[in-house]
Write a protein that binds this DNA or RNA. Sequence first.
DNA 1: GCTTTACCTGGAGTGCGCTCCAGGTGTGAT
DNA 2: ATCACACCTGGAGCGCACTCCAGGTAAAGC
Lengths: 121, 121
Amino acid sequence: MFYSPAQAAEKTGFSIDTLRYYEKIGLLDRIDRTAAGRRRFSSDDVGFLGVLRCLRDTGMPIAEMQRYAELARGGAETVGERVAVLETHDERIDRQIETLRAQQQHLRDKIRYYRDSFDVE
Amino acid sequence: MFYSPAQAAEKTGFSIDTLRYYEKIGLLDRIDRTAAGRRRFSSDDVGFLGVLRCLRDTGMPIAEMQRYAELARGGAETVGERVAVLETHDERIDRQIETLRAQQQHLRDKIRYYRDSFDVE
DNA sequence: GCTTTACCTGGAGTGCGCTCCAGGTGTGAT
DNA sequence: ATCACACCTGGAGCGCACTCCAGGTAAAGC
């Protein structure tokens, strides 16, 4: 199963420009081409992009994703390091959620204060 | 109670440069000055910065904070609008947390997969 | 055969949110 | 009197992550 750039973009939620950019900076391995020079994304490529999607959506910087991508190219002996990267990131996500929740609570208190003091609606 | 720029920065977690920047773009009202022309943040200023801190930490863009700031300058008749802004943002935070959680789950699945398949550690 | 469409390349440009800099001033300690 | 210090201003610069553009190609539909 192969995917055109448009299909890969559709599947992964990245724009075609972003896919090209990711390849250019080495975040993606060189993507296979058709005879005409067009990209042909494999299922594995799309699967890897799915992981990148998770990492981006949870705020991992590109530089760190590059490190992860490099490890992924390294074969089975890098699995331990990959897991370490993901677990560190997992903890970061916990902290992010915690920050969001705490600040959300402050804002809710503020809303309540406005409601109580000014009788909104 | 007044605060020097350094104290305000300390209290709010914004850098002094950021405080100046926020004043420059009208996110803060013109801050009071000493005879020598130095800023003197009031408790109210610091309190307002606390709200900005919540909004920034939860990903509100500056442009929208400017709108909120403008409403805040508008007095009591804008309280309803302010509450509306905060509530819309509150929902956005809910969605953010939900996205983080979902993607975190995918990453955890990935970690588990690595562990199960490669027997890490 | 012609046009449209989807793609290609290298490189420039964008938006956001700061952050830094040069050059200057009033205040307080030694 | 001198020095360090915290602050001032306007404006330039930066890092990140794209996004857009000009100019070009190959294949598919009419």
